[in-house]
Write a protein that binds this DNA or RNA. Structure first.
Lengths: 194, 194
DNA sequence: GTTATTCTGGATCGTATAGTACAGAACGAA
DNA sequence: TTCGTTCTGTACTATACGATCCAGAATAAC
């Protein structure tokens, strides 16, 4: 062994992720990434590989964080409708305040790259499936508790929620208006009415 | 007057729009645009200005076409639920078959540029508002015909449909699976249940 | 200490890209 | 035909970008 790494790889990845998240893949230059991580090109390349590899690792990180957040939000001991409502409220709050105006990193990658890049499309698909699964499991538990009709199609509602939330966050990028977003929220949540 | 233009400006704009639509703004190079329009750089610049101006004109064109399509779809003499369902079916059909995998040009621009570019955000907002207005008017007519409850919030449903359709098209980019999209469609349309 | 190994910052390279310049061709008006 | 104007294709420029290289610094093993 020899000289140890002077920076925190994890912290650097977090900063790089935020850079990609805010500006997109193509628009984020290596200089941006160096500035965000406070690393030199050499260190970036040694630690993460090239720009594209860094995007992959950023997206993986985001996915894990996102899954954890959603799972936590849906595991609270409250009716599922209330849990989802609170989760969406948090999204709207961040959109209106500005910090959420970057949208969803997964959705951003889907919009920018899924069409051109098969590997990215597959990764986005897996990420969305995991989110969908988190919703599905929460909905199934709620259905077992009697919060949803026995006939409710839990799979379909989960898929719908994923798409609806992506739509909400996308629209919120261009029109971060609370009244408009609350309207969307209200209709969105009706899929959880008993 | 002197030598007249040899190409069809309108046709060239249509091709340029398709290029931007398929690849996004940054990823579409001037060479791409020249190849798509079969024009030289000089002609492109003389006719449309720079790359960014060409994007603006492409988006304006798309907006007009899109509004016309939506208005036509919602003006058919059928219940509004049926009209919207048919419209969404068309979207899903194109996503599954491949041609719709480019997503919505407005949504793509929102995802790529709305955060960075105020003018683009404003343009996207206006476009989405026009689409929303088309839905709102169709819904109001349907409500007057008794297809929707008197208490239904037509504004909110219109906003929701815009966001929901954006979500559907975005998710469809990464997962162009008919069963999944039909699930989303089914729950989405429940906002039009009487 | 000494040495071998790894890290770091800056310089550098090749390429791709948006935009411009220019010369010649095509056309209408006289 | 002639002349002025506009169009078109090619060559060019300047820059930005991703990636690599290299020399020196820092550190652990001995």
């Amino acid at each position: 062994m020899a000289r140890p790494r002077e920076f925190d790889t994890d912290a650097a990845l977090e900063r790089a992720m935020q850079a990609f998240w805010a500006k997109g893949f193509k628009a984020t230059t290596l200089d941006d990434l160096c500035a965000a991580t406070k690393l030199s090109r050499s260190s970036l390349y040694a630690a993460f590989g090239g720009k594209r590899e860094l995007l992959d690792q950023s997206l993986r990180r985001y996915e894990e964080q996102g899954i954890a957040r959603i799972t936590a939000a849906l595991s609270r001991p409250v009716p599922v409708r209330e849990a989802v409502a609170a989760f969406v409220d948090g999204l709207i709050e961040r959109i209106v305040s500005g910090s959420g105006r970057v949208g969803c990193f997964i959705g951003n990658c889907a919009a920018e790259l899924a069409r051109q890049d098969r590997a990215m499309a597959a990764r986005v698909r897996r990420s969305l499936e995991r989110i969908e699964a988190a919703f599905r499991e929460a909905l199934a538990r709620a259905q077992a508790r009697g919060e949803l009709a026995k006939t409710a199609d839990v799979d379909a509602i989960a898929r719908f929620l994923v798409a609806g939330i992506q739509g909400l966050r996308l629209v919120g990028k261009a029109n971060p208006d609370r009244a408009a977003l609350d309207d969307i929220r209200a209709v969105l949540l009706r899929c959880l009415d008993p």
